[in-house]
Nucleic acid binder design. Structure first.
Lengths: 210, 210
DNA sequence: TAGATTGTTAATCGATTAACAATC
DNA sequence: TAGATTGTTAATCGATTAACAATC
């Protein structure tokens, strides 16, 4: 789709631009220069212009960027104008937290099904969505055009479940299990390793306490 | 504490080394070469050696690295041999998920208090820890030597709460609110922006669907 | 038009990889 | 000792910043 591959460093900054532009828009601000955005976001103006120009010229010399337009363009680049059908595997506290967070739906990420191996919670509902047994997962994925699976299960099961899901057509994983998933090249994995994040904080606390 | 500042790129990889070494240790493996580790972790052997040598020579020529020793040394570098007292602000689903995740305690991150502005859940207990009103937070932080605050509240309140916590001695934030915290230089912030992560996945799905 | 600010090229900086001498 | 593998220097690669011509 892209002419040249965009680096993950750039991709990683897009949601942050998107967030700040949304805030400016909500404040009724219509235009912004790379320098103004630089002051607010604490990144260099040069980087902002360089990043945006990976995707085309959204600005205008002498004027800057139109906030609403840029916001919507970045949204499109991120694919937020498209809908995704998700399932969540693992209905523990974290799984429930994610299902209950409405903002994902607002951005086009729709939870279609929840799966858990614990019989006690099967049949209960989380925000109206029934918790189903794992045995129903494969069929559900095929029948409901699921493209993203959210894994909020312990690491022991994650690799096998991921494999199973790849085989029935899931294209992307949002992985909260503390394990690295190795999947085919055409499958995307975005991992959130919470304990890694906490360890980083721990290191930085130590190294700055002198 | 360090002679030269270690880059965040390196720090970010340490927890992953730690994880893989822990797994090797649990398998009863005693030694590992950078090349073997490279094969398992899918990073270059050169990078592993380079990263580790930021902190000193943990290996031995002709032998490699002792798994148990390296594991424990990386743990120390990450500060996992020290205890941290945490509070969590926001007892919603995400807050509950984190409090209930025992592995953090195993690594020395002890939840001491939970705070929430919702009167209905004040007084209830999560894993034995009482949910307290926000008004008690400042005093609690001072009296219980709290050094890390976990913010699982909506972004509207986060900036103000963080300011308040800095003023009573909190040194680090694990921030799940969808906002960037600007704190003094001696205070550490580690943010987990879940929706940013999901947007990255969305981009990568789009860009690889051709 | 003159001033402002982008888009883009060139320069710099930092991180990764390669290579190899040191050494166990 | 000979073989293996680290620690570390040098080379490469990529990302960030600076600079400025193009242009609105």
């Amino acid at each position: 789709m892209e002419d040249r591959e965009i680096s993950q460093a750039v991709i990683g900054r897009l949601p942050r631009y998107f967030r700040y532009l949304g805030e400016l828009r909500d404040q009724g601000i219509e235009r912004v220069s790379s320098q103004e955005l630089s002051d607010i976001m604490r990144v260099t103006a040069s980087q902002i212009r360089q990043d945006l120009n990976n995707f085309g010229g959204f600005g205008q010399q002498g004027y800057g960027y139109n906030v609403g337009y840029l916001y919507s363009e970045i949204g499109k680049i991120l694919g937020l104008n498209k809908e995704h059908n998700l399932i969540i595997v693992g209905a523990g506290h974290l799984g429930q937290a994610l299902v209950n967070y409405m903002n994902f739906e607002r951005r086009g990420f729709i939870f279609r099904g929840i799966f858990d191996s614990n019989e006690k919670i099967q049949g209960t509902r989380i925000r109206g969505i029934e918790v189903r047994p794992m045995q129903e997962m494969e069929r559900f994925v095929r029948e409901n055009d699921i493209d993203i699976a959210v894994l909020t299960i312990p690491k022991t099961g994650a690799v096998q479940v991921a494999e199973q899901l790849v085989s029935c057509g899931v294209k992307g994983f949002w992985n909260f299990a503390h394990v690295d998933l190795h999947v085919p090249d055409n499958i995307q994995v975005e991992s959130v390793h919470l304990s890694d994040s906490l360890m980083k904080l721990s290191y930085n606390l130590l190294s700055h306490s002198e």
